[in-house]
Design a protein around this nucleic acid. Structure first.
Length: 648
DNA sequence: GTAGGGTTAG
């Protein structure tokens, strides 16, 4: 009966970036079952899941104990679920079946539901639920959250309703309500979150911090940021997660100013600790809103707190600079990082890619492979996207083939989308069409849209009609498809068809989502919509644009009214073009900054053809580098040309 | 057996 000294020193946890010292060492009496199981439970509870599993295995091997009991099996199973590790979990499942603990023991059953949900085996999770002779609230809750995790929120809500009808509302506790709220957050429809909110108020759970946290996120996910903020403001107590969620909500909504405000309130008035999570979230907000000045301040804070080496924070810094048009600053930050994971590398590849610097993107990608990091599904999207933005036809073909052959990754719609775009751009329309036809997956509307756009550039009316028909079948409300087809007809002088498209757009009530452009000035974001006159300096902006237009016309500028949808006269179309949001933003930025300094404009939609031509000229006339981020990529306008090579 | 199920971020 030799006691075993079980000590775990420095070890690296799988799926975690930092190596850490496990604060665990104790004497385990291997002859005592309770000492054995409490050691495993301690490890599992403190989050040292691989160590818990190792302890379970090694102690089983060393021990004279006949067979494990639920008190050691259970924490091991819960660690297997947390990692998550399907092989370990299955082994433990089989063991508990053999020993008769499963399916009889509801504690084991709930852990099994959790395990199979986390390893994306929802059918097995459901089976574990059905096999259990006991159906208590914990089992229901495990199933509800598991279904949410596996992208089935509707079924999750149905299971939650079963809970209520079978067990009554008295069985509902905060954990149950939290999983129900997170299901609601992912179901579209009016007031879904509000329904469960009402229920939990009736049950007197609104003061629970976790419940409030989940509600904040749920309202935000359903587009009701205001309601989320209200819940946040009324919470009696807020923890770290509450604050981080509120920052994240604004980040996801692309509101860097509000995100920073909440962050400042957290570290200022509330004098809470700033954390890596909070800083990544704020950085994410800056990336989304193109707020490079604020982003730089946040970056300074990251440096001050010595958090640059944190791989998550470092990656969000890289991503922020890329998305704010400063890909060289991103590269510098990338170079300083001591540790890089797959997301870090992919962010850098994507960063170069969206700036049209495909060669550099591929170089980084090759360095990544040399560094021994295995590319995944996402990485290949970045790689192929980079090829398509730079027209690297041969590289694109090569890596598209290699992803399946060398890395055994089946191409998804995103990869096909990049290839269709790349081939189409290069004028290989038949090959592009052929690729769509040989896809095993259902092509989405974006893929057909890419081919449609290529058909316009390379003037192929037959294939254009085919593509448009398919695209519109999948997404009949997307006005871009109507416009592209109409443009093709216009290029061929088929004015009757152009008119037919115009009528179609009108009768089907197709609306273009409102376009807006953002410019950051002294840390403040200025937003412009088409024909916006809300800006205090709008008189000056319009006056300046008028003067610019005269100079542009001297250079041969002719308005391209093709992308104006409205049912109006030619003259009026030109007026609309004149006040497109990106033109207003560019004019405002030039007026407000020192001559010669670069300009960044963030646009929510794709930049229109006329604006693209106009901004090229403005860049030349004003001797400025104008960088525009549209919904698709970056455009660097300089000396009258654009980095996209006029294909976007 | 404070045994199992619950929220945020990258």
């Amino acid at each position: 009966m030799k006691p075993l000294f079980l000590s775990t020193t420095t070890t690296t946890r799988p799926f975690s970036s930092s190596s850490l010292t496990v604060p665990f060492s104790r004497v385990v009496d291997t002859s005592s079952a309770s000492s054995w199981s409490s050691a495993i439970a301690d490890l599992s509870r403190s989050g040292h899941h691989s160590e818990a599993l190792l302890a379970f295995l090694s102690l089983r091997r060393l021990s004279s104990q006949p067979s494990p009991t639920p008190s050691s099996l259970l924490p091991a199973l819960s660690s297997a679920a947390s990692l998550p590790s399907l092989p370990f979990g299955r082994q433990l499942h089989l063991l508990s079946l053999r020993l008769g603990y499963s399916p009889a023991d509801p504690f084991i059953s709930s852990s099994l539901i959790n395990l199979y949900s986390k390893t994306q085996h929802p059918a097995d999770a459901h089976a574990a639920f059905l096999e259990s002779p006991v159906r208590n609230a914990v089992l229901y809750t495990a199933l509800v959250s598991g279904l949410v995790r596996n992208a089935n929120p509707l079924k999750a809500l149905a299971v939650f309703k079963q809970l209520i009808s079978n067990l009554g509302t008295s069985e509902i506790d905060p954990a149950a309500i939290v999983s129900a709220i997170s299901a609601c957050a992912r179901v579209s429809g009016a007031n879904v979150v509000g329904g469960v909110h009402g229920l939990l108020v009736k049950l007197g759970m609104e003061a629970e911090t976790v419940v409030g946290n989940t509600l904040v996120d749920a309202y935000a996910k359903s587009g009701e940021v205001g309601n989320g903020r209200k819940v946040f403001d009324e919470m009696p107590e807020r923890d770290e997660v509450s604050w981080n969620s509120m920052v994240a909500v604004y980040a996801q909504g692309g509101k860097p100013v509000e995100a920073v405000e909440v962050y400042m309130e957290m570290v200022g008035r509330e004098s809470r600790r700033s954390t890596a999570v909070a800083l990544s979230a704020v950085m994410h907000a800056c990336a989304k809103g193109g707020a490079v000045q604020v982003g730089r301040c946040v970056h300074n804070q990251v440096i001050r707190m010595a958090l640059e080496d944190n791989v998550y924070v470092g990656t969000s810094v890289v991503d922020m600079y890329c998305k704010c048009g400063r890909v060289d600053a991103a590269w510098k930050a990338f170079g300083r990082m001591k540790e890089r994971n797959i997301k870090t590398w992919s962010a850098m590849v994507a960063g170069y890619g969206m700036h049209g610097r495909g060669r550099e993107a591929l170089d980084v990608f090759k360095q990544m492979i040399e560094a021994g990091v295995r590319p995944n599904y996402i990485t290949f999207i970045s790689v192929l996207d980079a090829c398509s933005h730079s027209g690297l036809l041969e590289d694109g073909r090569r890596w598209f083939k290699a992803m399946k052959q060398d890395y055994d990754i089946d191409p998804g719609v995103e990869h096909y989308g990049c290839m269709v775009d790349l081939l189409g751009r290069a004028g290989c329309l038949d090959e592009s069409y052929g690729l769509i036809k040989e896809m095993r997956l259902e092509p989405d509307s974006m893929i057909w849209g890419s081919l449609l756009a290529a058909c316009r550039v390379h003037k192929n009316i037959e294939l254009g009609e085919i593509s448009a028909r398919q695209a519109l079948k999948l997404d009949p409300k997307n006005c871009g498809f109507y416009v592209s087809l109409s443009n093709i007809y216009a290029d061929f002088g088929r004015w009757k068809d152009v008119e037919r498209m115009r009528v179609l757009i009108k009768t089907r009530g197709i609306m273009k989502p409102p376009g807006y452009s953002l410019v950051e000035l002294k840390g403040k974001s200025h937003m412009f919509m088409v024909g916006d006159r809300r800006h205090p300096q709008h008189e000056e902006i319009y006056g300046y644009l008028d003067k610019l237009r005269v100079r542009m016309q001297e250079l041969g500028y002719v308005p391209d009214t093709g992308s104006v949808l409205h049912d109006v006269e030619q003259e009026e179309k030109e007026t609309i073009l004149r006040v497109h949001s990106e033109k207003l933003a560019v004019a405002f930025a030039i007026m407000s900054t020192v001559p010669g300094s670069p300009i960044l404009v963030i646009k929510n939609l794709r930049v229109c053809g006329d604006c693209h031509t106009a901004i090229k000229m403005i860049a030349k006339l004003e001797g400025r580098e104008i960088v525009v981020r549209d919904s698709h990529r970056f455009h660097h306008f300089k000396d009258g040309v654009c980095s996209c090579g006029d294909y976007w």
